[in-house]
Amino acid sequence: MTKKYEEMIAELKEIVRKIEDNETSLEEMIVLYEQGTLLIHQCEEKLAEVEVKITELGRES
C-alpha cells in the first residue's frame, strides 16, 4: 500500500484499456479484472483516509 494514488489510477486506466482492447484473451482479461478490482479497492481505501498528515519542516533543515 505504499503506491501513490496517482500511480494506482494510472495502472487502473491501463487495465481498463487492455480489457477494452479486442486483442486481450479471456484468461488475461480475468486476471486483469481481478487486479483492477483490487486496485479500485485500494484507491477507495486511500480516499477514505480522512486524517490529513501535516509535517512542519524545521527552519534550518
Binding site: 487502473l12 481498463v16 483492477g36 478490482t37 479500485i40
Partner: peptide, 23 residues
C-alpha cells in the same frame, strides 16, 4: 474524493460490462 469515488465506480462498471460482454 467524491468525484474520484464516482470515477472509480464508473471504472469498475466499465471493466465489469466489458468482461460480461466478452464472455
Amino acid at each position: 474524493r467524491r468525484s474520484e469515488a464516482e470515477n472509480l465506480v464508473h471504472l469498475r462498471r466499465r471493466m465489469y460490462l466489458c468482461l460480461i460482454n466478452y464472455m
